[in-house]
Design a protein around this nucleic acid. Structure first.
Lengths: 152, 152
DNA sequence: CACGATTAAATCGTACACGATCATTTAGGG
DNA sequence: CCCTAAATGATCGTGTACGATTTAATCGTG
């Protein structure tokens, strides 16, 4: 048994750490996603970019980074791979050459259909009801916002 | 506004995905941990290994992998870096040369004291009460176990 | 118009993370 | 005993991730 009830400075075990629950659950999600995304030729972070573009095409790199909490140093190579796969194009905005616009190709748009079943598969794998999922999603996102505020 | 209430096959936006809440919260935890762990010379995954060893010294590589849900291909280089930092030793078990025992050095054991304040700092950053934290930790870990079961 | 300050993305170096494969060691059966 | 099968880490290749720096373009102010 762990020392959950012990003094305030007793070192917690791994399984008592909320951060570890989050960390390991992220890996677990990845494992469930992999067989679903492999046929689409996408990794999980690439899938997130595609979901973001399906909702709003033509975003800037920085805009995607804000939505996904990722840096350009992460996104640039990832986007280049998606470009090489034929799912999107990257082009400088003529009105401001500093910005790079990311646009879906026909193949990239069509991929949305092939991925239609994915969310339902994931829901089932979580073993949660839709209501529990929505509640948990909200609580976790709220904690994330607290953490980001604390990180400054 | 998102389409939470729409048909069962409506593509969800990024912020509706539970997996994304988990994924981005993992990154947010990392950002809070970094300034706390940098002075200790640890990365976040390295910290998890140390926490695991502080609770139980002399574990095998595979044992650590089971506890942390990590493969030897991830742990081996990570452990080598911790060994180079002087926090632990890696040595083959004489009674079974296949196994590698990971043991804390004096410096590695002493590091526990220097990390004593970390959990409290993290708790504060989450903005949660201890009770909420424990409940949320349990719900997330339970979902993780469901996901791993589904992944086979 | 000049020119420093600001902004956007790309680049570089380090560190995970996993699947596939490999090398070594052990265990079991004939 | 030998010889194969299983177990255990290590290695390799690909793909995130981030901080720090660099490059290029734009903006603000004089």
């Amino acid at each position: 048994m762990s020392d959950s009830g012990a003094g305030p400075e007793t070192p917690p075990g791994i399984d008592d750490l909320l951060c570890f629950a989050v960390y390991s659950t992220g890996h677990a999600f990845n494992r469930v996603y992999k067989p679903l995304l492999d046929p689409l030729g996408l990794t999980y972070p690439q899938y997130l970019v595609m979901v973001s573009l399906w909702a709003k095409d033509g975003q800037r790199v920085g805009e995607l980074g804000e939505a996904l909490f990722l840096e350009s140093s992460t996104l640039t190579p990832l986007l280049k791979r998606l470009e090489a796969a034929g799912y999107l194009t990257r082009s400088r905005d003529p009105s401001d050459e500093r910005q790079v616009r990311v646009r879906l190709t026909a193949a990239g748009t069509a991929l949305s259909d092939k991925a239609r079943h994915v969310p339902r598969c994931i829901l089932e794998a979580t073993g949660l009801s839709v209501q529990s999922l929505i509640r948990l999603q909200g609580e976790i996102a709220s904690m994330r916002d607290n953490l980001l505020k604390a990180a400054g």
